[in-house]
Amino acid sequence: MSRAVFVLSTGRCTTQALARAVADLVPGAVVEHEGLKARYMPRRVYRKPQALARALERSGEIEAKFREIEDLIANGRRYVDTGWPVYAWIPYLRSRLGDAMGFVHLVRNPFDFAASMLTHRFYVTSNGRYKKQGVIFGTDKKLIHSALAAGWEGFSAYEKCLFHWLELNAFGMECHDLPGFRGLYRFEDLHAGDGVALRALLSELSGAVPDAACLPVEDKVHVPLREPIVVSHSLLFDAVIAQAEALGYDGARLRAGYDPKALAQRYGAARWADRRRRN
């Protein structure tokens, strides 16, 4: 059983609630949601082995975190990071930690994900490390979808969120061939009434046998959507659908269900006003 387990995701995938659930299951474990946050510099090192090496040399914080994890493993403790900014380090961590390291791939419906991500104004403002060093840009090097990224400057902010989803989930599938891969999970299945997927995921993360049958949606920062939902690039849309199908989604249902007006209403100000009234 792996002693250090990571969640590879795009973000906006209920990882805050997962961290809390795992911590409750294994009180002696060290459970973090985004251990170093964007200080992992994932965009800078994404699919660039030489950049990974330079980052370790220059950032004592990253090296210290990895040594902390190694010490926990050596002392029989369990470490779990459910946050998304560690994504670019997954292959390196496997090579460094060996059989003590495992990871799962967590994915969410692309259109819901992009709307949720856009509420935080990614690709709208450049303020903050998450927006500069966390997410993928079409102008970056070593992209899987570099040809598609040629239209990056013309993408809407919502389309840029979709591109981030597309690129990172393609990378996630690249990582499936690594030893230590513990399965693909879908956000929607975790919130299904039967609790089967949730129990399986919590078991992988915690090493314990959970009895949880539901997972609350948890988000410490509630922000209403203020940006338009616009998809005008058909090649991007088709690539997202194809990637979703590879991840087990029903492509025809996703295509038919894409409704910008409904998404804007669900993630808009009315939704958060209603939540405030209920709370």
Rank of each mutant, 00 (worst) to 15 (best):
224 P>I: 00
170 A>T: 15
271 R>W: 12
107 V>A: 09
19 A>N: 07
137 F>Y: 15
172 G>C: 03
177 D>I: 05
64 A>Y: 05
144 I>M: 00
244 A>K: 10
201 L>D: 09
13 C>N: 15
178 L>W: 08
268 G>N: 04
19 A>E: 10
145 H>V: 06
101 M>N: 04
22 V>H: 06
198 L>W: 00
252 A>E: 15
83 G>L: 12
133 Q>D: 15
111 F>E: 02
213 A>Q: 14
171 F>G: 04
7 V>H: 11
197 A>Q: 06
133 Q>H: 14
137 F>P: 01
23 A>M: 08
160 K>G: 04
202 L>W: 04
176 H>T: 12
32 E>M: 11
43 R>F: 04
191 H>R: 13
24 D>M: 06
260 P>V: 00
13 C>T: 15
8 L>W: 05
58 R>Y: 00
215 L>G: 08
120 H>Q: 11
120 H>G: 00
218 E>I: 08
74 A>I: 09
20 R>Q: 14
45 V>F: 03
207 G>Q: 02
52 L>A: 07
151 G>N: 12
229 I>Q: 07
132 K>G: 11
164 H>T: 14
163 F>Q: 03
96 R>M: 10
179 P>D: 09
11 G>E: 07
110 P>Q: 00
76 G>S: 01
56 L>G: 08
173 M>F: 05
189 D>S: 14
203 S>W: 02
125 T>L: 13
166 L>S: 01
103 F>Y: 14
115 A>T: 04
72 L>Q: 09
47 R>L: 11
245 E>S: 01
183 G>T: 05
190 L>T: 03
138 G>T: 01
18 L>E: 04
187 F>R: 09
153 E>T: 08
115 A>Q: 03
26 V>E: 13
14 T>Y: 11
186 R>C: 07
271 R>I: 00
235 L>M: 09
224 P>F: 07
26 V>R: 02
80 V>W: 04
154 G>T: 10
214 C>M: 07
6 F>Q: 08
240 V>E: 05
218 E>D: 13
194 D>I: 09
167 E>R: 02
98 G>R: 09
43 R>Y: 01
141 K>G: 06
150 A>V: 07
244 A>Y: 01
179 P>Q: 03
59 S>Y: 07
62 I>T: 01
6 F>R: 01
268 G>Q: 02
126 S>N: 11
261 K>N: 05
247 L>H: 03
150 A>H: 03
47 R>Y: 04
214 C>N: 12
80 V>N: 05
225 L>T: 02
116 S>G: 13
160 K>D: 10
197 A>S: 14
40 Y>R: 05
198 L>H: 02
212 A>P: 09
237 F>A: 10
247 L>I: 08
123 Y>G: 01
171 F>S: 06
269 A>M: 10
274 D>W: 13
173 M>P: 13
246 A>E: 06
123 Y>I: 04
69 I>S: 11
141 K>L: 08
183 G>N: 08
41 M>I: 04
126 S>H: 12
194 D>L: 10
192 A>M: 05
155 F>L: 12
190 L>N: 02
181 F>G: 07
39 R>D: 15
93 L>H: 07
233 H>A: 08
139 T>C: 00
1 M>S: 13
107 V>I: 13
143 L>H: 05
195 G>K: 04
185 Y>S: 10
